[in-house]
């Protein structure tokens, strides 16, 4: 399912909102989560999950092709942890 399909499916659930407005809302949701993570703040959506940023120290690596030693710089990586409700619903046993 893509973002546009997500907008369509959400539009079927809520009244009083145009599809265009729902599209804008979906964009704001993901943009504000990105902004929050960019500023180093974590994102917590009850029942869905949480996003946070972990830091990776710089380290020495090796180019596997040439064997050359290279420096892998410090970086931040985003992480998602599914919430209880989402975890349980994804692991519904009758669907195995």
């Amino acid at each position: 399912m893509t973002k546009s399909a997500l907008v369509e499916a959400t539009a079927r659930k809520v009244k009083n909102f145009s599809k265009k407005d729902i599209e804008t809302i979906v964009d704001i949701i993901f943009n504000s989560m990105t902004e929050s993570l960019r500023s180093g703040d974590k994102v917590e959506i009850r029942g869905f999950g949480s996003f946070k940023v972990k830091e990776r120290r710089s380290r020495k690596g090796r180019n596997p092709k040439t064997g050359e030693t290279i420096n892998i710089p410090f970086k931040r990586v985003p992480f998602f942890k599914a919430g209880k409700d989402l975890k349980e619903r994804v692991d519904n046993k009758q669907n195995l």
Binding site: M1, T2, K3, L6, A9, T10, K13, V14, N16, F17, I22, I25, V26, I29, F30, M33, T34, I45, G47, F48, D85, L86, R89, V90, N92, N95
Partner: peptide, 28 residues
């Protein structure tokens, strides 16, 4: 009303994953 839409968005994502279907949010 806004809160209802936000809930509906996350609920739709959960329903989709429940069906083992992937969700692709471009840019995210």
């Amino acid at each position: 009303d806004v809160s209802e839409v936000v809930d509906a968005v996350f609920e739709t994502i959960k329903e989709t994953l429940e069906r083992n279907e992937k969700i692709k949010v471009s840019g995210f």
